[in-house]
């Protein structure tokens, strides 16, 4: 049976680097994609997410092992990004276009376009991807957590350190902005 996060993190707190390695392998994809959503560039997302794991390991003794790991890690990642002064950077949303691979997912290294692709080849999907790119960081972040991380309101509130009511109003604001921009496609 696979050891639980709590068990692995407790071992990490005792200095077991390999236990932390299991945690890294377990969460690396979520960490990378969360970073990619923020920075919009593959190499920087790799660097940011790996650096966040380094910070997490150094601060592991402060972590309460009864809590979920990812929200804590996401806050480290976000603070690291803020400290790097990348707050003004935009996520690049793109849509899937003819010529992309058969599985419906473009390889990250195969295109200069941003990290997101539309599963549908419709005009609306392409425009939506562009319009998401034009949103401010706070709106993009809340949509990313909801639709790509599939987080509940409670989980988003915990991750962002804000009340659930604020989560709801941010989601409303983000969708309202998209609705205004996408009116002719709706």
């Amino acid at each position: 049976m696979e050891p639980s996060d709590g068990e692995l993190l407790a071992r990490s707190q005792a200095g077991d680097k390999e236990a932390f390695g299991v945690i890294v392998r377990r969460y690396m994809k979520r960490a990378y994609y969360a970073a990619l959503a923020i920075v919009g560039e593959h190499h920087e997302a790799m660097d940011l997410s790996q650096e966040a794991f380094v910070r997490a390991y150094k601060g592991i003794r402060k972590f309460d092992t009864s809590m979920a790991f990812f929200p804590w890690f996401y806050r480290i990642l976000k603070n690291l990004w803020i400290n790097r002064g990348r707050k003004g950077r935009h996520i690049k949303f793109t849509s899937l276009t003819a010529g992309d691979d058969e599985e419906g997912q473009i390889d990250i290294a195969s295109s200069d376009a941003g990290p997101f692709v539309a599963a549908e080849r419709s005009e609306m999907a392409k425009v939506l991807a562009q319009e998401m790119d034009a949103l401010d960081g706070e709106k993009r972040e809340i949509l990313y957590l909801r639709h790509f991380e599939n987080m509940s309101y409670r989980e988003m509130a915990e991750t962002l350190g804000i009340p659930e009511g604020t989560v709801m109003s941010r989601l409303h604001g983000a969708r309202q902005a998209l609705r205004a921009r996408m009116e002719r496609y709706l």
Binding site: G21, M46, F93, E103, I106, F116, M132, L143, H147
Partner: peptide, 25 residues
């Protein structure tokens, strides 16, 4: 809007990146 947003996906990362990820950390 919500339905279309949920259908956006993220680009795939080649497997070798994941193999080397922990070593990078």
């Amino acid at each position: 809007i919500a339905g279309a947003t949920a259908k956006l996906a993220m680009k795939r990362v080649p497997p070798e990146h994941w193999d080397l990820y922990w070593a990078g950390v």
